[in-house]
Design a protein around this nucleic acid. Structure first.
Length: 276
DNA sequence: AAACAGGCCTAAA
DNA sequence: TTTAGGCCTGTT
């Protein structure tokens, strides 16, 4: 399909839609920018190109993509501007909210989120991305887009059917056993992510924590980025530093942020990671 | 070279 | 309930 036949959706006001804020705030591992800041990635088996210019943002994909995938994926119907202003009423977070203007919480595929964040543990971003890409290339469906080959994130059953030797090629270390076991659980239905998603956040977390290799941090990331639970609040080493910086030593309870605690977390995290 | 990286598990207090 | 040590691998 030629470029002319692609669908190009314009987000008129990109104040609340920043590709950098969205893709480089640590929630997703499959979007990569070229030298012009144009991101290309795959989700739900479809590829897209996303960028901003002159105060507008654009999503380009094959026709029907926006309705089928991107509208929900980018959580377009939610008013992130209003939420950001709400969160920045917390004085100490004003700068982080301003810096993170345009961040949105992606609604990623549950299995992709679970698997990706299992891989993420005790790892750095480049390596996480590398392992995830290798996994997609190994057993994800091929997706052609603008003359190039990409790969969908593989289904749990595709991952479950990998041999130990194949899994080994990912070089994911001790995480390989976790990946395999989780994949088998999701594939055979003993882990039912749709059902977990329907539970209240704390109960859903309790279920996720039963999965081998899933602790507080990975469970929270899965809830927030894969199951649409915006009140989940992942805390990693960066967030520990952020909490000390913004709220000082001592007791801190993320529930002060209420239903959108996870978004507050993203502003804090992104600011810690990406400021100057 | 040794330490560290977006943790988790197990054993031991 | 909290804490220490080990764990695959790649990078600095």
């Amino acid at each position: 399909m030629s470029v002319a036949e692609l669908e190009k959706i314009c987000i008129e006001d990109c104040e609340d839609f920043s590709p950098f804020g969205i893709f480089d705030c640590g929630q997703a591992f499959r979007w990569n920018a070229d030298e012009n800041g144009v991101y290309t990635g795959v989700a739900y088996g479809r590829a897209a190109r996303v960028w901003s210019e002159n105060g507008k943002a654009y999503i380009m994909s094959e026709p029907g993509g926006y309705e089928a995938v991107w509208r929900d994926y980018f959580d377009i119907s939610r008013d992130y501007g209003a939420l950001r202003r709400e969160i920045s009423r917390e004085k100490t977070l004003e700068k982080a909210c301003e810096f993170g203007k345009g961040i949105r919480i992606l609604r990623q595929e549950p299995w992709e989120a679970l698997c990706s964040f299992i891989i993420s543990q005790c790892n750095n971003i480049p390596r996480i991305k590398g392992i995830v890409e290798k996994l997609c290339a190994l057993c994800g469906d091929e997706v052609g887009f603008m003359g190039k080959k990409y790969f969908a994130f593989p289904s749990a059953s595709a991952v479950a059917s990998l041999s130990v030797k194949e899994l080994d090629t990912l070089r994911s270390g001790y995480r390989a056993a976790y990946i395999s076991q989780a994949a088998k659980g999701v594939a055979d239905g003993s882990i039912n992510l749709a059902e977990i998603q329907s539970l209240p956040t704390d109960e859903a977390k309790r279920e996720l924590l039963k999965i081998e290799g899933v602790g507080e941090k990975v469970a929270s990331c899965t809830l927030l980025f894969g199951l649409g639970k915006l009140d989940a609040f992942p805390v990693d080493v960066w967030m520990k530093r952020a909490i000390v910086e913004f709220f000082g030593e001592g007791k801190f309870d993320y529930r002060r942020f209420g239903r959108y605690a996870g978004l507050a977390q993203q502003y804090m995290f992104h600011y810690m990671r990406n400021r100057k």
